[in-house]
Amino acid sequence: MRRRIPIIITFIVGTALIMAMFIPHTPFSSLDENLSVYFDIIAVFAFILGGGNLLRVHLEKIQKKKRDWQFSIVTVVGFLFMLIIGFFKVGGPPGLSGDFLAEGSWFRFMFEAVFNPLQATMFSLLAFFVASAAYRAFRAKTKEATILLIAAFIILVGRTPIGHYFTSWLPKQLDFLHVPTLASWIMGWPNTAGQRAIMIGIALGVIATSLRIILGIERPYLGAEK
């Protein structure tokens, strides 16, 4: 019974939502609307679960003094500090309904002075690793690798203003060889064709999986069977 009831609920809700897609009239339209609100409410609880899980994992690491446990102290202290100053709007407007990012609030200061530069720094480092990886990995070892290399080369040049000057001397009849035109062609045709194929494949996979879940063939949401 404990397994049958969730399967029945899934079947009824899933079928009703599919019907709502094709019958945009009451009660189906309001069903779709209300269930979307439930989804949004549940999404909020994901934050509580995520925060709880983060604390559980790191407190356990500190308690058992696992490898690099000192970093977990920084994580837990940082998390609790931001949570408290954000929740109580320290330095900001009084009351719980005010803006936690208001001028003068501690949360705003921490976001601007700590979080912002830290995230920007982490992401900026990618430029260095991408350059090093491109130098080592982009070798024309096979036919496929050569095609990839040529495409990457055109996109790299075409996505900069230099690309425009590179072939601007070409006569109008050879405009199709202009680097930005070639870059746009690669993005607009081979790339789009590949992306569409992948997207259609994913969509078919999602439909198949959804049907399996609605029909009770696949039951990942029930967890492991005891």
Partner: peptide, 12 residues
């Protein structure tokens, strides 16, 4: 981007 391209050319 130019520096990366030069390195790719040298590498090849």
């Amino acid at each position: 981007h130019l520096v990366i391209i030069i390195f790719i050319i040298i590498g090849n």
